[in-house]
């Protein structure tokens, strides 16, 4: 392959070409409905990037990323609920449950600045705390995965049960809120959100790339491959794992916020168990440890899902399961790993 540098470049850059085309050409050709779908799927690429960071590189298979995804969504959802109210007014749903005054933890979300930080810092803190407790006790492998899923269920049930605090099962709608005088659900705002998503996907990719390309990234890979060995060399692996788990949490929060405003609602369904498993499947199919593969996996699988579901609603789950089996058995490095073959970092 070395005698064909153009072939190597082609292999290397084609996935990027696909993404650039998706980001630049599709907004012109796609009708608003499809463009909105693409924006949602691209925003899911950000949570997938975080999963690639903790799973593909560090070997931490979290089945609970929905927690952080939802926290980001709720942070923005609460702000939008408050944003278009006259002073003294409460979001509508509070009236259904006879709540007369705004719960205390809602107060700071009136501030756009606070919300901007809360979207990623709250999930990062929750992930960091959960991660620290788990990693300090050296819980790993399957036990870690089960624990994250259990935590997800706790959050799922809690949010479902809290009508008076966050409207329980119904979630928070965002479409009818206004930003700068326009409805969030309008084509104009949705198109702006699409561009914002593109920018943030690139930024998130860049962050993950920066984290993984140097010695810090080598430590992550070494944790995945032989963590005890690394401890005997002097590395406090707990702090590395806590740090990347918090970063993945922050990315999930940003992803959840973007997804919320492009779907018009945030609800406890964001923390449903199957959804968090699907996130892992996107990364597996796209290619673990490739970063860009995680984004491609999220976009491609979700587009396939929406196309198949429109035609044959019953069959999607079978196709998704089949795809996962195919990748695990035939392409263990995912689509991108197979496309790139194995390359050594210089």
């Amino acid at each position: 392959m070395n005698s064909f540098p153009w072939l190597k470049a082609w292999r290397r850059w084609l996935p990027w070409l696909v993404l650039v085309v998706a980001a630049l050409v599709l907004p012109i050709v796609l009708p608003p409905f499809r463009l909105n779908l693409l924006g949602r799927f691209l925003s899911l690429g950000i949570v997938a990037l975080g999963i690639d960071l903790i799973w593909g590189y560090t070997g931490l298979l979290s089945l609970g990323q929905g927690i952080f995804f939802a926290l980001g969504g709720y942070a923005l959802g609460m702000h939008l609920q408050l944003g278009s109210l006259a002073p003294g007014q409460l979001p509508e749903f509070f009236g259904l449950y006879g709540v007369k005054s705004l719960p205390g933890f809602w107060q700071p979300f009136t501030s756009p600045l606070f919300t901007f930080f809360a979207i990623w810092i709250v999930p990062a803190l929750v992930a960091g705390l959960l991660g620290y407790l788990v990693f300090r006790n050296r819980i790993k492998g399957v036990y870690f995965s089960i624990l994250t899923q259990a935590a997800l269920l706790v959050f799922f049930n809690f949010f479902n049960g809290q009508q008076k605090l966050i409207n329980g099962t119904n979630g928070l709608k965002t479409d009818t809120a206004k930003v700068f005088g326009d409805l969030v659900g309008s084509d104009l705002v949705q198109k702006e959100l699409f561009w914002l998503t593109v920018v943030l996907v690139v930024a998130a990719w860049w962050l993950c790339r920066w984290l993984t390309k140097g010695r810090f990234g080598d430590v992550l890979v070494a944790i995945r491959d032989d963590e005890p060995r690394l401890r005997f060399t002097g590395y406090n692996t707990t702090s590395y794992k806590t740090l990347v788990f918090a970063v993945a949490g922050a990315l999930a929060g940003i992803s959840g916020a973007l997804y919320t405003v492009q779907s018009g609602i945030v609800s406890p369904q964001f923390m449903a168990v199957p959804f968090s498993i699907e996130m892992v499947i996107w990364v597996a199919v796209g290619g673990r440890g490739t970063l860009i593969g995680a984004v491609l996996g999220a976009v491609l699988i979700n587009f396939a899902k929406s196309l198949v579901s429109e035609q044959l609603p019953e069959t999607w789950l079978f196709i998704q399961g089949g795809l996962f089996l195919l990748v695990v058995t035939a392409l263990p490095d995912g689509l991108l790993g197979w496309w790139w073959r194995r390359e050594v970092k210089p």
Partner: peptide
């Protein structure tokens, strides 16, 4: 021998 298999000797 326990070397990190997925890193180069230099790394």
């Amino acid at each position: 021998p326990r070397v990190y298999q997925n890193l180069s000797p230099r790394r």
